[in-house]
Nucleic acid binder design. Structure first.
Length: 808
RNA sequence: GCCGCCGUGGUGGAAUUGGCAGACACGUCGGACUUAGGAUCCGAUGGGCGACCAUGCAGGUUCAAGUCCUGUCGGCGGUACCA
């Protein structure tokens, strides 16, 4: 069988018979299988694409054969930095290179033979898509979920652009390697923090890898603590946030972040110079560096004092950059005795340490940061941990000086980028009216083609006069467009919705279609998106639900991460390692089906691992064996139907394989699924060696073999199906079902144990009761010899497996 | 540092979730058929001559532990002064 020929033949036929599409008229239950869409980079599909899409497609085909109306769309995440960088390097316009790449990749994806519904294809860089991305922005804006604020961001002075945290490597710009500075800039944010609590709670009900859910939990970082107001001697007050208000009596100083609004006003004239110098110093250090715990703590005294809310004690106020402006209130109460950071800082600057917590039953060694017994704290003495916190927080709250407060580590999502290749932010800046959203009827705000995107100190769109100059939709006065574009994660936060209604010109999607097809039943993609795309998409879904566009809470009911195929040397495949394995050579030599089968069989899907091709010949041999036995079986004639132990064994092997393969495919355990099919093939070969065959049984088993293999080797199975006289497409057949009767063997082999040591094995009727099994076993010579003069205290029977006699 | 995951033959990897450890393959060895074999088919293959010993190491629970608990070493991923 020539793989190239049959691939072409069946792909054409599937296309013609619309076998790959979602059937909108079908009554069958829907099943939405989604793989994370591709970034149209380079020109070729790499092993990673195959590893993601091949097995996932087998899963989709399997669901189809199970009777579901499967929707499996594909598209391209086409905006983004790589295309722009490529343009800067080569001068090829991002639009041109992206379109070319998409065309190539589309062809290659089709050649894989996956069951993609191309009628729903989307490309995020096309007007009819990004128009709706902009529309999303406007809805978020209307709802108060998109806002502009000044915030510290990573700024590359050479590229003159804001960079995302991921684009900062070792405090340097990934593009030009110049040092990053922190800068306060006015940027657009999405208020994802409004949904922090729901994003956290919603995780519990999701069928996602625990690992990923945990990463999101940590990322959201909920913490319950207490806010406390400290009066300043010179007037005003400072609000601090703490999770350890039980240590309130151990406060020896307060610390404000250098960016804290009160930092300068609290500074006394004598300290002004030192404070100013320190604020400047802190502004230069970037956030990554600041957060490094190995870095020595620095700070400066403001010269002024606050008053302890419960004791009235004078407390010096310091600035230090180990306190973050963006978390809590940007100010903390320092308790050196019970916090490592405060302890180190106090030691360096000679600040006092006051112990107010004692370890229960042991020496208290400072800093002691665990829960313990409260001491030296007036009437709170003797309380422990949570009860102490509750009591002190209640007091604070009664005094009107704060109280319990929940904080999240999650920050709002910075969505504006000073880049060209993205969706323009649909906002117009008017001198009189301020930031005015572009009216929906004027969408899309088109991304102009003739733009100078080479970096020369200005944001690319800002230099495009025709793009920038417009009139204010509000007052009609001349106004400027927002020169920024949206983070590409905005585009990918709603693409699974657009798929359901990809050509709708009036709305981003119709509610009817979305509610019908969503949520995605199984979503497959890399684990690297755990705290980015997967979190943003959940946020979008919840926000759109609250705006009344959707009727469900979570976009992805079940999530599966494929592992990563590494280079043969165990490193990530990359040009710099020189360890890239091209799928093309293998596909050319063995065919798409064989390559896909090998990826499924040779690796544990969720683990991946270093590439090696030791087993690929085994797959070719396996397919060869299947073809031979299937075609040979088809040539048999006769209705002689012996039915003895061999036939029973074959029927058992068939049913066992069906039962296990079904479970394994459902669980994305592809390697064991293929192993089970190989076992069945071995059983069929064994049976075929018999002189007297039950031909109808053999043929039925071979038919099931083709069906079992079909999701994993689609072209191959179609061809066998046709050659053996099957009607229609193999994917119109239903997946084989196990026969419970065949799985009921008359007798099963039990391991017979005495005190958990195996004594012998015995065939025991599978229908017999525990007691019957026990007495049967006692009759066995191996057993009775050893039981001589001993009594059986207990008998443990594990059905179908073993009988364990426990002897005193 | 903290959180999470993982350590099983020469190799990739199984183990119905506490029940015959090493399925299914690769590789190796032996055999058959061949002028030939890097094709195909058949057999053997964790270690030990053996009783037995084996799932990183040391303990524990249990009739029974790769699986559960405690400690420890090693690897991977996430996060990093979040008060």
């Amino acid at each position: 069988m020539d793989p190239k020929e049959i691939e072409k033949k069946w792909q054409a036929r599937w296309e013609k018979n619309k076998l790959n599409g979602f059937d909108k008229k079908s009554q069958a239950p829907k099943y939405y299988v989604l793989e994370m869409f591709s970034y149209p980079s380079g020109a070729k599909l790499h092993v990673g694409h195959w590893y993601n899409y091949g097995p996932a497609d087998s899963f989709a085909r399997f669901k189809r054969m199970q009777g579901y109306n499967v929707f499996q769309p594909m598209g391209f995440d086409a905006f983004g930095l790589p295309a722009e960088n490529y343009a800067i390097k080569t001068g090829v316009h991002p639009k041109d290179s992206t379109e070319k790449n998409i065309e190539t990749m589309e062809g290659q994806l089709r050649a894989m033979g996956a069951m993609f519904d191309w009628s729903a294809e989307i490309k995020t860089c096309e007007e009819d898509y990004y128009k709706w991305t902009q529309w999303m922005f406007l809805q978020f804006y209307k709802k108060g979920l998109a806002y502009r604020k000044e915030a510290p961001v990573n700024w590359c002075p050479s590229c003159q652009t804001v960079l995302a945290n991921e684009q900062v490597i070792d405090n340097r710009c990934e593009r030009c390697s110049s040092e990053i500075v922190r800068k306060n800039l006015t940027q657009w944010f999405f208020k994802i923090t409004d949904y922090a609590e729901e994003l956290l709670n919603g995780l519990d009900g999701l069928d996602w890898p625990e690992k990923t859910k945990n990463m999101q939990r940590n990322w959201i970082g909920k913490s319950t603590g207490c806010e406390i107001d400290f009066d300043c001697e010179q007037g005003g007050k400072i609000r601090v946030y703490t999770t350890r208000c039980d240590t309130l009596f151990g406060v020896t100083y307060l610390v404000l972040a250098p960016e804290h609004p009160l930092a300068r006003t609290l500074t006394t004239p004598e300290q002004a110079e030192a404070v100013e110098a320190y604020i400047n110093y802190a502004a230069k250090a970037n956030e990554i560096e600041r957060l490094s715990s190995t870095r020595e703590k620095t700070g400066v005294f403001t010269g002024s004092y606050a008053v302890h809310p419960l004791t009235g004690k004078r407390i010096p106020i310091w600035l230090a950059d180990y306190v973050l402006a963006s978390y809590g209130t940007g100010a903390v109460m320092a308790v050196p005795a019970h916090d490592e950071r405060d302890f180190a800082f106090a030691a360096k600057y000679g600040l006092p340490v006051e112990k107010v917590i004692e370890k229960q039953g042991g020496e208290t060694e400072l800093p002691f940061c665990e829960d313990g017994i409260v001491r030296g704290s007036l009437e709170f003495d003797g309380l422990v941990g949570e009860e102490a916190r509750d009591a002190i927080a209640a007091r604070i709250s009664k005094l009107g000086r704060g109280g319990k407060k929940v904080n999240y580590r999650l920050r709002d999502w910075l969505v504006s980028r000073q880049r060209y290749w993205g969706a323009p932010i649909p906002v117009i800046h008017c001198e009189k009216c301020g930031a005015v959203p572009v009216p929906e009827k004027d969408l899309p705000v088109r991304l102009p083609y003739d733009v100078e995107f080479r970096p020369d100190g200005k944001s690319p769109l800002a230099k495009h006069e025709k793009f920038m100059h417009t009139v204010c939709p509000n007052c009609g006065a001349p106004a400027l467009r927002d020169p920024d574009t949206l983070d590409t994660f905005v585009c990918s936060s709603w693409y699974y919705l657009r798929y359901t209604d990809a050509h709708n010109e009036k709305e981003p999607f119709s509610r009817e279609e979305a509610d019908r097809l969503l949520p995605v039943d199984t979503y497959v993609g890399g684990a690297e998106h755990a705290c980015m795309h997967l979190l943003y998409a959940r946020f979008f879904t919840k926000a759109l639900r609250d705006m009344g566009y959707l009727d469900f809470d979570e976009p992805f009911r079940r999530l599966v991460h494929q592992g990563v195929i590494l280079g043969p040397d165990g490193n990530r495949m990359s040009k710099s390692h020189g360890n890239i394995v091209s799928p093309d050579d293998y596909v050319n030599e063995y065919g798409a089906d064989a390559f896909r089968l090998y990826l499924m069989f040779g690796f544990s899907y969720t683990d991946g691992g270093p590439w090696n091709d030791d087993g690929i010949k085994a797959i070719a041999r396996f397919m060869d064996r299947v073809e031979k036995i299937v075609l040979k079986g088809a040539s048999y004639r006769g209705d002689k139907t012996p039915y003895g132990p061999e036939e029973k064994a074959l029927a058992y092997a068939r049913s066992f394989a069906v039962s296990r393969v079904t479970k394994d495919l459902e669980a994305f355990s592809f390697n064991t699924a293929i192993a089970r099919i190989m076992e069945l093939v071995n059983a069929i070969y064994k049976y075929d060696g018999l002189a007297e065959k039950n031909v109808p049984l053999l043929k039925e088993t071979l038919r099931d073999l083709i069906l079992l293999i079909a999701p994993c080797a689609p072209h191959f199975a179609e061809e066998l199906w046709e050659q053996t006289g099957g009607k229609g497409s193999v994917f119109e057949q239903s997946y084989p079902k196990e026969d419970p009767a065949a799985l009921q063997l008359d007798e099963k082999e039990y391991a017979v144990q005495i005190n958990s040591k195996i004594v012998c094995k015995a065939m025991i009727p599978s229908s017999c009761s525990d007691q019957e099994a026990e007495s049967l076993v006692k009759e066995l010579p191996e057993v009775s010899a050893r039981l001589e003069g001993k009594t059986v205290k207990k008998c443990v029977v594990v059905k179908g497996r073993l009988i364990n006699l426990i002897v005193g």
